[in-house]
Structures are given as structure tokens and as C-alpha cells.
Amino acid sequence: MQKPEQQDQSREFNAHRIVIRVLLVLMAVEWILLLLDQRWLSLFLVTFIIGTVFSPILFRSRMQVEIPAEFHLTAVIFIFASFYLGEVQDFYQRLWWWDIALHTTAGLLMGILGFLLVYILNESKRVELNMNPGFIAFFAFTFALAIGSVWEIFEFGMDQFFGMNMQKPMLGDPSGLTDTMWDIIVNALGAFVISFSGFIYLKRKESFFVKKWIRSFIEKNPGMFKS
């Protein structure tokens, strides 16, 4: 009989497998339709989503790193919501709050990724580092801000060179500056929530949901970490 923890892992694995398969079928059909319609930019975005679905294979074969199911599923769902629903299906125009919600979520996710990266480096036996909780939290926050800034540059470039409308100019501000600033602000808020939560966890060992993600990554890649 399986232990409760094993049962949870089994349910997570099954949910991950079902969602990924459904998304792959949907993206494959969409890819063919976009190719027939010659919508090249949307085709590129859908191709990128499909590549993200298969990314664990690349990490496993090239870097000998196992990506936990919850990491992969979170990344795929976010990219699907951002690129497919947002850009291909035009949710950014249909729902005024879609852009704000995704940028806030991006801040949370990039904060988590930054926290995980520096925490893993701190615990890895391949790298001799010993960083305090304050620095780990600060790195997570600045990492999320940096990624958010790179994304805004990407949006600006796509608008300038391909005539897209990724910056979403607002009424009274056709330049898109207001949209860009709000994107950066909500991204920073999301990053701060995760960074501060991680700092409290490291200082006081209080509950922090990312702890489960860290433990999952360590369990799948034990050779990377100190005993």
C-alpha cells in the first residue's frame, strides 16, 4: 500500500501527464491551422510552446538534470496563457486584466525561479558558496525584475520591428509607456511577495510552499547536492 506522500506524488504525476497530453494535441492542431493560414508569428509562438512541453527531455539528455513535474507544468501553463491565449487568441484585448494578471504571475514565478536557482547553488556540492538568507531573497527579487525588464524590451522590439501591439497603448498614452510601467510595477510586487516569503522561511523555518518544490528538485537530482 502506498504511503500518503507517494499517493500525492502519483496524483501529481498523473495530472501532469494528462494536462501535457491535452495541450500537445491542442497545440498540434493549432500548429497545422496556423500553417495553413500562414500566420507565421503565431506559428512561431505555438512552436515555442511545443518546445517548452518537450524541454525536460533536453535538460535530461544535455544537462543530466531532472525537472520535477510541478516545475514543468507551471511553466507550460504560464507560457500557454501568455503566448497562446494572450497573443494568438487575443485575450490581452478581450480581457483588460489579462496583461496585469500575467505580469503579476510572472513576478511570482520569476521570484520563485530566482530563489530556487540561488538556493540550489548555495546547497550544491559543485559550487562552494555560503550565502545568507538576505542575499538569497535579494537575488530572487532582482532576478525577477531583470527578467521582467528583458521581457519589456522584447515587447518593445516586437512592436517596433514587426508592427505588433504587445505594449498595449492605453487611452491618452499611445506610446505604451503607461502599460510598460504598470507591467514593471506588478512584476515587482509579485517578486517581492515571493522574495519576502522566502526570506522569512530561511530565517525562521516557517511554512513556505516553495520548500516542497525545492525538496522535489533535490530528490530528483541528489548527485548535485551536499549530503
Score class of each variant (00 low, 15 high):
M164N: 04
W97L: 13
R204V: 09
M166H: 12
A106S: 13
A188P: 04
G163D: 07
I136E: 08
K205G: 12
K168P: 00
N132H: 14
W97N: 02
M158F: 09
G157S: 13
Y119S: 15
P133H: 14
Q167Y: 06
A140L: 11
D183A: 10
S197R: 10
I200E: 07
N122H: 14
N130Y: 11
N130T: 07
D183T: 05
F208I: 10
P169L: 03
F162E: 08
G114D: 03
D173Y: 05
I200C: 11
T180D: 08
Q160H: 11
P169D: 02
L177N: 02
I112L: 02
I147P: 04
V118N: 06
G163Y: 09
Q160M: 12
G111E: 00
V127M: 08
L189T: 13
I184R: 05
R126S: 12
F139Y: 15
F156L: 03
Q167F: 03
F162H: 12
S175K: 06
E155Q: 03
L171C: 00
T180H: 11
T178C: 00
N130F: 11
Y201K: 13
W182P: 00
A137T: 10
G107C: 04
G157P: 00
G157A: 13
L117R: 03
L171F: 07
S149C: 06
P174F: 15
N132A: 10
Q160S: 14
G111S: 01
V127Q: 09
T142A: 14
T104Q: 00
G107P: 01
V193I: 15
A191H: 10
L121K: 08
F138L: 15
N122C: 12
N187K: 08
G148K: 04
G190R: 13
V118H: 06
D173G: 04
S195I: 05
I153E: 02
P174C: 10
W213N: 02
K211W: 05
F141M: 12
M158Q: 07
Y119D: 12
V186H: 11
P174Q: 14
P169K: 08
L177I: 10
I194Q: 04
K168H: 08
R126L: 14
L121P: 03
F154Q: 01
M164E: 06
E152W: 00
W97C: 05
V118G: 06
F199L: 15
L102E: 08
T180Q: 11
A140H: 09
I100C: 04
Q167K: 11
S175N: 05
N122T: 10
A106H: 01
P133A: 15
T104C: 03
V193W: 08
W96D: 09
F209L: 12
G163H: 08
I136G: 08
G157V: 08
K125L: 12
F208L: 10
P169R: 09
I147M: 13
S197H: 06
D173E: 05
S175Y: 03
A146C: 09
W151I: 01
N165G: 05
M110S: 03
M131C: 04
G176Y: 01
V118K: 09
L102K: 06
P133K: 14
G190D: 11
M110H: 02
R204T: 14
A137N: 10
M131T: 05
A191S: 13
M131Y: 12
G111Y: 02
H103C: 01
N132P: 01
M181P: 07
M164W: 12
D159E: 12
L171P: 00
